[in-house]
Structures are given as structure tokens and as C-alpha cells.
Amino acid sequence: MDIALFSPSSLFAGDDDDDSTTEEETVGTHQSYEERSHEFPGMDLLIREFSFHQLNANLLWPGTFAFAEWLLQNCSWLEGRRIIELGSGTGALAIFLQKSLGVDITTSDFDDEEVEENIAHNCRINGITPVLPHIRYTWGDKFPKTEPDWDLVIASDILLYVKQYPNLIKTLSFLLNSYKPKDEKAEIDLSLPQPTFLMSWRRRIGKEDEELFFNGCENAGLAVKHVGSRVYCISPRQTSQVDQ
């Protein structure tokens, strides 16, 4: 099996951070793939992964599976929601949620054709046709949709690069504060704020770095609440009530 280099930076604007570039990333651009079977709750998914990708959207992390199980256990919070996933990578989590719960979900990741095509490929080989809608977008840039109508944003393991937190918070603030609901009124569980961001963070980083992100959210007018199993609910402060 090829050694895969990976990180959750797939939506980040480019920079010259020393910790975001490895020697291997500069060796060449030849791309190769491998399809692997991954066990999700109640199903196996065949996911094509890059052996290496310069934008770090190539491989599944273990936290994806834990978040998938948590979301399945709390599926009432997803029912009737329009969902967008940040940093979709291979698209595996979104594919799992669509197949298991039939949710309305959009994938998103760095503005890169290979990443978009790979998510589409993984949709097709797992029987999702037409493929899930996808948005190519770099955190901190102007969002391509001026009135976002997703009332649930999700992401798994996306806090590796501390210097990119302001870009992520800027994007979250836009998606949550500029939310415009569609005309139709879906039945949803109002114990979860509308809109809101559910983030699973299972990879360990320094406590100071973790607090830097959460404090940045608070300073941007967003409320942060830990809702269990290292899953956090982040929402506009005025809609931050979450039932336990």
C-alpha cells in the first residue's frame, strides 16, 4: 500500500506555513489512486483515495468514522436539514449520510478539479447518481453563494493549521449569519439551533491552540458548546440553546 500523506487543510487558503509543507509534497505531481473498502456503521463503502495529494484531501482519518457513528446516533438533528460539509476530502462522510439517512447534503473542499472529480467518482462507485452537489471553495475567500440556505454545517478534524483559523471563522460566520431559509418549511428538531455548525474534533492539538479557535469563534459572535464525544455545536449567539 502506498504511504499516504494527509491533513485537514483541504479548504485553506494557501500560505507559506512551515508546518503545511513536507519534503514529499515538492517531489512531484504524479498522481496515483487506490480504492479501499472502509467499514462505516451498518455498511461498507468503497472509497478511492489519492496516494498523495498536494492539497491534502487524499485520505480518510479515523475521526471520520467516530463522527459518522455519532451523527447516526443523533440522526434526529439531521432530519429535514439542508447540510453542507466543509473539508469533504474524499466525500466519504457525506456519502455515508446520504446512503444511511437520505439527507440533503452538499460537499465542499478546496477549489481543485481533482478533489471534485474524486468525490464524484466515490459517489458513483457507491451507487449515488446523480452525484452529490459540490462547491469548490477556499476558506476566507468570497463565498460563491451570496445567500447560503444550509441550516447545518458539518466538518470533521479540520483544526490542524492554527494560522488558518481566521479564514475558517470568517467562512463560518458568513455561512451562519447570512443563512436564508428556503420557502418550504421542513420539519426539524428545534433543540438544535438553526443554523448551526457541528464539528467533530478527535485529533489532539495543544490546549492553547484549541482554545484559540474557540475563543476566535466567541469573539466573532458565535457561541460554542460541547455536545459530547468531542463534538462541538457552534452557532450565532442568539440561537445558541442546545438541549442535552
Rank of each mutant, 00 (worst) to 15 (best):
N58M: 07
H53C: 03
G127K: 04
V153T: 14
E79I: 02
L72P: 02
A66E: 11
D149S: 15
A92H: 09
L71R: 10
L132Q: 05
P133C: 08
Q73C: 03
D44F: 13
D109N: 07
T106K: 10
W139E: 08
N126V: 04
G89M: 07
H134Y: 15
I119W: 07
A68C: 15
L97T: 03
I47N: 10
G80Q: 12
F143V: 09
N122G: 05
E117W: 14
F96K: 06
D109Q: 12
P144A: 13
A68S: 13
D104T: 01
A66H: 15
N122T: 03
D111E: 12
T107H: 01
A92E: 06
E49A: 02
L55V: 07
T107N: 10
R124C: 02
F67D: 00
G140D: 10
P133A: 08
T146F: 11
H121D: 02
F110C: 04
P133T: 05
F52Q: 15
K145E: 08
D141R: 15
W77R: 08
F52E: 07
P62H: 09
S100P: 00
E85T: 01
K145Q: 10
R81E: 00
R136V: 03
I83A: 00
P133N: 13
L101P: 00
C123P: 00
A94I: 05
G140E: 15
W139K: 14
E69W: 15
F65A: 08
L86T: 11
P62A: 09
E79S: 11
I105A: 06
I128D: 02
D109K: 12
A92L: 07
R81I: 04
L59V: 14
I95T: 01
P133K: 09
W61V: 02
P133H: 14
C75A: 13
L152F: 08
S100E: 12
T90F: 13
A68T: 03
N118Q: 10
G63F: 11
I125V: 09
L72E: 09
V153R: 01
F143Q: 08
G63R: 07
L71M: 15
L60T: 06
W61S: 08
W61D: 05
G127L: 07
K145M: 06
P62R: 14
T64K: 08
W150L: 08
T129V: 06
E116V: 05
D111V: 03
Q98Y: 04
L101W: 05
D112R: 02
E116T: 06
T64W: 07
N74H: 13
I84Q: 00
G140C: 12
S88N: 07
E69K: 15
E147I: 08
D109P: 04
W77Y: 11
S100I: 10
G80C: 03
H53Q: 05
L86P: 00
Q98R: 11
K145C: 09
F65V: 01
P144E: 12
A92M: 10
W77P: 00
L45M: 15
L72G: 12
T146Q: 14
N56P: 00
I128F: 10
Q73G: 10
G127M: 06
L93V: 11
H53Y: 09
Y137W: 14
L59D: 04
T146C: 14
D111Q: 12
K99M: 09
L60N: 09
S76G: 08
I125C: 07
F67Q: 01
K145N: 10
I84G: 00
I119A: 09
S100H: 10
L152P: 02
E147C: 12
S108G: 04
G80P: 01
